[in-house]
Design a protein around this nucleic acid. Structure first.
Length: 423
RNA sequence: GGAGAAAUGGCAGAGUGGUCGAAUGCGGCGGUCUUGAAAACCGUUGUACGUUUACGCGUACCGGGGGUUCGAAUCCCUCUUUCUCCGCCA
């Protein structure tokens, strides 16, 4: 959510920049600023009447103390009309604020200047690339067939236990999952991130804090009896740690990481492209989250990119880093880089990580602020997060790219975690 | 799940209807003293919104929400959480 101050001071610029996200903000921003004016106007009136009441009340207290009952009674009668007026103004104020907030949350984050204009993924900008696409001999198998052939992932069994999108990893497949998780965690730790192991279900407030609620509730599994939500990403609990928190500037940046399963309903997005591991309802991911000083957030973003790049390199996967265009970048993000790895049998690039700077868009909603030493005013922090990494598509690429006549070779960095080097 | 008690500023802890945004202590910050430090002493010490060029001023906030009252930390309703005892339990 953008701050009212920003919109007030940068109306024209905001409207212009939002066009990059293909968002026509003119009408709505004008309406927001109108509402903001009447909000302030109404509050001022209500506050000043309340001040009157407060001073009369104090007066009454004094009069009673002096035993002047009649004068106190006279003053008391005065207040009735003012109170009604205050009541009315406060109802107005709360209506205005509700509407204002409702509109404000529909305005996307302002994209960074680096975000290219564009409609969809075809307009993304290739920022960096690396690795080598392997040349596989004969007829390479897609990972879902490899999974069956070596009996390491059982999709049908998942159907039986739960439903589509909930695979069962078996034997070396299960071990490989665990190896990847530990590898990612160890690497993140070495890069200075602190591990947290958060709850996998969160309450409504947390859903609001990171913006999944109220609009995107369809993406999350909802536990109705307790009004809890299964987390779609560790970003939700880990970022909400800092909801309503004021940090000391000297403690920035805060660098956290977490391994969690992620649960996504993915309603209506199933089709030919989502076979096997390509899209799941439950998957594992290591997430990195950075809370940064506003002046340093783009440095943090680069640091995160470097970290994720190191991971895909160590896994020896061909990759490219895409800077998302205005049409592809998320509502909340100011700048996003997607990591894609090439899956050699499907002959497709698979998105395995998304690293974003949200600037103060999330922290404004979270009310996560910091105080500079010696400063009185608290300022909003910048928040960033990224996958480092999501497992299923990485696994898909590893299986497909490393298949050979004598089985599937495990990338060397993982062997100390798996205890085996081929499947 | 049952019974009882509680929730106050960074922490501890007073305050049960009227100058209470809140005593006091600790902590933090600034200062005096000191070669420096400690001790002592003095001052200061939350958040949000509004208003003001500024100093400042106004309003709200004593777990959350609602109510009574001219006036609520204090009374009422409701929810949540914590503690103690009992029950159950990996």
């Amino acid at each position: 959510m953008l701050t009212l101050n920003y919109l007030r001071e940068n109306r024209e610029l905001a409207i212009k920049r939002l066009k990059v996200k293909n968002f026509d903000g003119e009408e709505i921003i004008n309406r927001i600023l109108e509402l903001d004016n009447s909000r302030r106007d109404t509050q001022q009136k209500a506050d000043s009447l309340q001040a009157d009441i407060n001073s009369i009340s104090k007066e009454i207290g004094k009069l009673i103390g002096q035993g002047k009952k009649d004068e106190a009674e006279a003053a008391r009668l005065e207040t009735g009309k003012i109170k009604n007026e205050i009541k009315r103004l406060n109802i107005d104020l709360s209506d205005i604020e509700k509407l204002l907030n409702k509109l404000l949350v529909t305005v996307p984050n302002i994209p960074n200047e680096l975000v290219p204009a564009g409609k969809g993924e075809e307009d993304n900008f290739k920022y960096r690339e690396g690795g080598k696409i392997p040349e596989l001999k004969g007829e390479p198998l897609p990972h879902w067939e490899l999974a069956k052939k070596y009996d390491i992932i059982d999709f049908e069994l998942g159907n039986k236990l739960t439903g589509a999108g909930f695979p069962v990893y078996k034997g070396k497949g299960a071990k490989l999952q665990r190896a990847l998780i530990n590898f990612f965690l160890d690497e993140a730790e070495a890069a200075g991130f602190t591990e947290v192991l958060p709850p996998l279900v969160v309450n409504e407030d947390s859903g609001f804090g990171t913006g999944q609620l109220p609009d995107k509730e369809g993406m999350m599994y909802h536990v109705q009896a307790d009004n809890f939500y299964l987390i779609p990403t560790a970003e939700v609990p880990v970022t909400n740690i800092y909801r309503d928190v004021i940090l000391d500037a000297e403690n920035l940046p805060v660098k956290n990481m977490a391994y969690t399963p992620c649960f996504r309903r993915e309603a209506g997005s199933w089709g030919a492209h989502v076979r096997g591991l390509n899209r799941l309802h439950q998957f594992d991911k290591v997430e990195i989250v950075v809370i940064s000083h506003p002046d340093k957030s783009y440095e943090a973003l680069d640091m995160m990119l470097d970290h994720v790049e190191k991971l895909v390199r160590k896994l020896e996967l061909p990759y490219r880093i895409m800077r998302l265009c205005g049409g592809d970048i998320s509502f909340t993000s100011a700048l996003t880089y997607d990591f894609e790895v090439f899956s050699a049998a499907q002959k497709r690039w698979l998105e395995v990580s998304s690293v974003s700077n949200f600037e103060s868009f999330q922290s404004n909603r979270l009310k996560c602020r910091f105080r500079e030493k010696g400063e009185k005013q608290n300022m909003l922090v910048h928040t960033l997060n990224g996958s480092a990494l999501a497992l299923p598509r990485i696994l898909a690429a590893i299986l497909e790219n490393n298949q050979g006549t004598d089985g599937i070779n495990i990338p060397e960095v993982l062997v100390k975690y798996t205890g085996f080097n081929t499947i």
